[in-house]
Simulated scan of single mutants.
Amino acid sequence: MSELRHTANAQIAQLHARYTGTGHADITKYEWITNQHRDTSSSIVGHPALLQYLAIADGETTARTKFELTERMLHPCGPPPPKEDD
């Protein structure tokens, strides 16, 4: 049983190391929302049909839309909130 638990913990740690946006027990709401916005933006940039659809809807070129989405990934939800000291 202990070996199974150790293996499961190792797999979870490997998953978190590979995919930073998977979250964990202590993730804040800001971090979770930021990961969601970054995932959405990267998905749109990575799928040319979605990028073209969004560009047409915004009345911009696809290159401009791709640039704006990529720039927005830096701080998709604004600056992080101040940390609370316990």
Rank of each mutant, 00 (worst) to 15 (best):
M1I: 08
S2I: 08
E3N: 08
E3V: 12
L4C: 04
L4G: 12
R5V: 14
H6A: 08
H6W: 05
H6E: 15
T7A: 13
T7E: 10
N9L: 15
N9D: 15
A10K: 11
Q11F: 01
I12V: 13
I12N: 01
I12T: 05
A13I: 02
Q14A: 13
Q14K: 13
L15I: 10
L15M: 09
H16V: 08
H16N: 11
H16Y: 04
A17W: 05
R18K: 08
R18C: 02
Y19S: 00
T20C: 05
G21A: 11
T22F: 13
T22R: 04
T22H: 03
T22Y: 05
H24N: 15
H24A: 14
H24F: 13
H24C: 10
D26G: 09
D26A: 12
D26I: 02
I27H: 02
I27R: 06
T28S: 09
T28H: 02
T28C: 00
K29R: 13
K29G: 01
K29W: 06
Y30R: 03
W32D: 07
W32P: 00
I33K: 14
T34G: 00
T34L: 01
T34N: 05
N35D: 10
H37V: 03
H37Q: 12
H37E: 10
R38F: 02
D39R: 06
D39M: 11
D39C: 09
T40W: 10
T40Y: 07
S41D: 05
S41N: 14
S41L: 12
S42Q: 11
S42E: 12
S42N: 11
S43H: 03
S43R: 07
I44D: 02
I44Q: 04
V45K: 03
G46T: 06
H47R: 09
H47A: 01
P48A: 08
A49Y: 08
L50K: 08
L50G: 03
L50W: 04
Q52S: 11
Q52H: 12
Q52Y: 06
Y53L: 14
Y53E: 07
Y53W: 15
A55Y: 00
A55E: 00
A55I: 02
I56F: 11
I56A: 13
A57G: 01
A57V: 10
D58G: 04
D58E: 15
G59Q: 07
G59F: 02
G59Y: 07
G59V: 09
G59W: 06
T61Q: 09
T61E: 05
T62P: 01
T62R: 05
A63N: 14
R64T: 14
R64N: 10
T65Y: 01
T65C: 01
K66H: 10
F67W: 15
E68P: 01
E68F: 07
E68R: 08
T70Y: 02
T70R: 06
T70K: 10
T70L: 13
T70E: 09
E71V: 12
E71H: 12
E71G: 06
R72N: 15
R72C: 06
M73G: 11
H75T: 14
P76V: 01
G78C: 00
G78D: 00
G78Q: 00
P79W: 09
P81M: 11
P82G: 03
P82T: 06
K83M: 05
D86G: 04
D86E: 11
